[in-house]
């Protein structure tokens, strides 16, 4: 009778001090929590605050603990769970390199148009696509590219923000 594993996107606003990312990451590894993706950058250069967006998975109890443990970190301003809190928007960007010629190359380009991916680099036998969307959309795109000559994938991890006028 195990509780179901759920996937959650959690945003953490932190003071951008030395070692703060290590604190967040160390909390996950030290307590055995999963990190599916992690995105971090300074979002307010004047206030020195950074936003960490973590996609994690676990039972509802584990997710609750993750949020509580994150709030316990001293440099943390706030923690928001976009999966359980007010509905948020999640986007991820990926660069996808596909090599090939002939039909496969044409098919790759056709599919990229369906996914609204941009071609940001091209040679006679390769493309680099830039694709933005929900992580599942990128997963699907990458899967479709696999038989068409997929050679490399670079993903940013998820950035998330709430709908409506309020901040996190």
């Amino acid at each position: 009778m195990r509780a179901p594993i759920e996937r959650h996107t959690i945003a953490v606003l932190v003071d951008n001090e030395a070692g703060v990312l290590a604190r967040v990451v160390g909390l996950f590894s030290g307590r055995g929590y999963n990190i599916e993706s992690l995105t971090v950058a300074e979002v307010d250069h004047a206030a020195h605050t950074s936003r960490v967006t973590v996609v994690t998975s676990g039972t509802p109890e584990v997710i609750e603990q993750i949020e509580a443990q994150l709030r316990r970190l001293v440099p943390v301003h706030s923690v928001v769970n976009w999966t359980t809190a007010a509905p948020g928007i999640e986007r991820e960007m990926a660069l996808v390199k596909v090599a090939g010629t002939g039909d496969k190359r044409a098919e790759a380009q056709r599919i990229s148009a369906i996914f609204r991916a941009h071609i940001v680099d091209t040679t006679h036998n390769s493309f680099v696509f830039e694709i933005t969307g929900a992580p599942e959309k990128i997963d699907n795109f990458v899967d479709l590219m696999r038989p068409l000559g997929l050679v490399d994938v670079s993903r940013t991890g998820v950035a998330a923000i709430s709908r409506g006028p309020e901040a996190m």
Binding site: E61, Q65, A68, R72
Partner: peptide
């Protein structure tokens, strides 16, 4: 006093 202890 530590919220992370609740329901841990």
């Amino acid at each position: 006093i530590d919220p992370s202890q609740i329901n841990k």
